[in-house]
Amino acid sequence: MSEPHMDTPEELDRMNARPIDEPAPTGADQILDQGVRDPDALLEVDHVTLRFGGVVALNDVSFSLRKGEIFGLIGPNGAGKTTCFNAMTGVYRPTSGAIRFQGQSIVGKKKHEITRGGIARTFQNVRLFPEMTALENVMVGADAHHKTSVISALFRLPRHWQEERSGRERSLELLEFVGIRRRAGDVSRNLSYGEQRRLEIARALATNPTLLCLDEPAAGFNPAEKAELLELIRRIRDTGVTVLLIEHDMRLVMGVTDRIVVLEFGKKIAEGTPAEVRDNPAVIAAYLGVPTDAA
């Protein structure tokens, strides 16, 4: 399906054909390790640039995630974090660069293919199906791997019953897992804000992801709720799911992540462990509002 933001096929071919080990365009960030292929990488964002007209939302960004870690993606407002998620989940197509998941390029794949391939996400502004119950919302996620065809649904063939039952059970387990099982039968728009955020996580988990991307899941939470959420994120990781977390709250990110990438104005300005990133002058400058050039 051609979307308005897509490039011509020639351009895309050229882009995909670009050798991955080609040296990165040099810039202020050349000191950072760029383009080093990690054979264990689960997800590789490889020199991705994404423009909206004149706005460069992502500027030659590279990083890679390892299986089983909790990875933080931070940066001030408008840094390009959400855009990065959108590029990874097929909502936007990078202007240039490659994104590989488990070694395979996912650029140009359909959104639902990427989801079934193992990347699930939540949204910065909650995007549930408001008139569906909490349980139904999660079951939509569970349906991602179901095979019930229109014919088997129409005639209620065994596959329909079997998947309906297993999907329902798994969805209820997930609601339990995120702590809102008692709201299963309520229409999702009637859930509290915090419950809606948790429901989004349950719905994403229902697609059975290898990588779960959370876009500011703690936005608007009080400290107690944030602590609970951290706990939940750790439990998700303990089930073997790799987590990519966008978060504004530095303390929260520092507490839970194994590694962090910092974006500012679409560029990666730092990468490392929480301790390394915290002491990085460019990061401090970015968060205090001083232009990076001056740092």
């Binding site: 989940t89 097929g90 909502v91 359909k110 959104k111 639902h112 989801t115 079934r116 699930a120 996400r121 949204f123 995007r127 549930l128 199906f129 408001p130 008139e131 569906m132 939509v140 996620g141 349906d143 991602a144 791997h145 719905r203 994403a204 697609t207």
Partner: peptide, 12 residues
């Protein structure tokens, strides 16, 4: 309800 969100949740 939300076509894009549906597709991102794996709905064809």
């Amino acid at each position: 309800e939300d076509e894009e969100a549906a597709e991102i949740m794996g709905v064809r």
